[in-house]
Nucleic acid binder design. Structure first.
Lengths: 219, 219
DNA sequence: GCACAAGTGGACTCCGTGTCCACTTGCTGC
DNA sequence: GCAGCAAGTGGACACGGAGTCCACTTGTGC
């Protein structure tokens, strides 16, 4: 297979379409090591308790030195984020431009009369699915309060804030956070470990969505 | 002042009314040191970032050795819990036996026709007040997932589960956790630091309560 | 193939945790 | 009082993870 022409030099760089002034290339050995790191980290996060994985574990598993690991990833969270990024971006894309009820619709398509409550419920369902697949990574990326500082969280908040405002709820700024809280990865894991399936979690979140933003059983 | 006849030897002991077979007493110096530890820890938790307070900090601030500190409190969380206990117990008491709408009423008093939604809203308001006063301690006691393992959380869950079941909501087990999630201390702190006042937080939680469990603006 | 910058890796320091044990001190029975 | 002893004390110690630094290696452009 051919090498992609311009692999991004920094993992967290914003996805500008083109034209970075100096595209400094990435050396072949560096690229190889990055791939090793991500593969090793993914396995470690999945196998053990994500919070217990150390930088040394990852370096050893990837077969590189600690210094090399620190060169690109300043901490465990940044590695987890790198692994998570593409999945989150895909969901964000669907939210912004995808078909209803997850996306806005509005092209004269089938979802033009979708309510904010329906969109929130769809968002909940999508997030639950994402969590089910990648809780390890989310837990590896965010410990406690750090969650609320991440760019991803800011995006989810903006989205939910928009939906609540559209539904006419008072104080969307305060409500958005509170509607996002049930998606906290620690809570999700706790519920799953107590034997609550994702179908029940999603259904329950649907009750929440329709109750607060209005719908079949709401105002 | 006179010394209380039988100070509890272990901080986390259940509050049985009387009759522990061997009440081993507590030596005067031990009691003095315990008081010092709690006072010093309370100050440290309030002053700095609670997660950044170390056992050594507390020992030094209390003027005792590390070994002495570890003798009674195996980790920072247990100290925070000891400081938090009485406040949480007071609230639990009100929830179980206090007047409506926080407590159940039912004595032919003024709160006999109180709805589950009203009681949930009252619970939210009380918890917000408790958080406002003691976020430091709650954050010192629970880091991330640990929250869901504590006895206090189990109590809150039981209470909310009961209210949701009473309101006829489907799957109270799943819903109870999700209704408690907005009270996560990290979220509370994040909201407060973004300039959202406790009145707005409480009002927003009230919307949540009435939306999900029914009420003026609910089903 | 040469020069140089990018990349590598392991040794090192710093800090917090938790344990251990020789010493001290308060309590109790006489 | 005071002797004996268990409870209590405190600091030294080992351990492990985070993050830094720098001498060496390797890939790449010319």
């Amino acid at each position: 297979m051919s090498r992609p022409p311009n692999p991004p030099a920094t993992p967290g760089a914003p996805p500008l379409p083109m034209a970075d002034p100096p595209p400094p290339r990435e050396r072949a050995d560096a690229a190889r090591n990055r791939a090793r790191v991500l593969a090793a980290a993914a396995k470690l996060f999945a196998d053990r308790d994500p919070a217990g994985v150390t930088m040394d574990d990852i370096a050893k598993a990837a077969g590189i030195g600690r210094g090399t690991l620190y060169r690109r990833y300043p901490d465990r969270a940044s590695i987890a984020r790198a692994l998570l990024d593409e999945h989150e971006r895909a969901l964000q894309e669907k939210l912004m431009r995808g078909p209803a009820p997850l996306g806005p619709g509005g092209q004269g398509g089938p979802g033009d009369d979708v309510t904010p409550a329906q969109r929130l419920a769809a968002f909940y369902a999508a997030m639950v699915e994402l969590l089910e697949t990648h809780v390890h990574l989310v837990l590896g990326a965010e410990t406690g309060s750090a969650r609320y500082e991440t760019g991803a969280y800011a995006f989810w908040r903006l989205h939910v804030r928009h939906l609540t405002a559209e539904a006419g709820a008072p104080d969307p700024d305060a409500l958005a956070d509170q509607l996002l809280a049930p998606l906290a990865p620690e809570l999700f894991r706790s519920q799953r470990e107590r034997g609550i399936g994702i179908d029940r979690i999603s259904a329950s979140l649907e009750v929440l969505a329709y109750g607060v933003l209005g719908g079949p059983t709401g105002p």
